[in-house]
Design a binder for these strands. Structure first.
Lengths: 117, 117
DNA sequence: ATTGACTCTTACAGCGCTGTTAGGGTTTAG
DNA sequence: CTAAACCCTAACAGCGCTGTAAGAGTCAAT
């Protein structure tokens, strides 16, 4: 599919799809006319990028482990390091979740203070 | 206390403390020499700002309800709207938490994929 | 063949946050 | 008195993300 369609399906702007590519997260093929061409799998990839990104992960970070799981054949890569990165990121996510919970609690205490009077 | 001390106590850079002020989140008094002067309460305020900020809240957003809870006397302000903002933000935090959880799950699935082989 | 929708590249610009630098005053301790 | 440490303002700069515009080629339908 062409970029416009992928954009519609994933609700990610064309601008950003091209940006993902520039950052090495997508590698669409090119038609003779220069148009980008995406396969079905890219939808899933983009969804994942969206999700990880919405959790505050940077594209550079996402890129680190995306190739390992994009289904590009067996991984002989530095997967020991990848494991580490993943562990790091998971822990990071946990920290973020903790902060978020505290934050939410503060908001609620604010609400409580306001509400009672 | 002066800005340097507040910075040390809260672990927020002097730069950022001044920025908070520029954005209307802090209102230190000024000594005759122009030095900013902070009271004890500011520590707590800054901690809250830190926490809310670390949860992805923008300073402009935080500012919306901070005055209402900074202990600046009774609140006759548009607190109905504040209530709404708070509810919005809480819901927002919940959404973020959900995303974060999904994100974490993805990371773990990646880890799982790598680990088994 | 023309038109409208789509695509391409390049580049500028903005947001929110943060560090750094420049240039200058103030305070404190030796 | 001097030097170190601290404070002030103002401004530039970068990061990561995102929109928008300019200028040009491509495609599909009429």
């Amino acid at each position: 599919m062409k970029i416009g369609e992928l954009a519609k399906r994933t609700e990610v702007s064309i601008r950003m799809l091209r940006y993902y590519e520039a950052e090495g997260l997508l590698k669409p093929t090119r038609a003779a006319n220069g148009y980008r061409h995406y396969g079905q799998g890219e939808i899933r990839t983009v969804e994942r990028i969206k999700l990880l990104g919405s959790a505050g992960m940077t594209l550079a970070t996402i890129k680190q482990f995306l190739p390992c799981v994009r289904g590009e054949g067996p991984v002989f890569e530095p997967c020991d390091e990848l494991r580490n990165v993943l562990h790091e990121q998971i822990e990071f996510a946990d920290q973020k979740a903790a902060k978020l919970a505290q934050s939410r609690a503060i908001l609620e205490s604010f609400l409580f203070d306001i509400e009672r009077q």
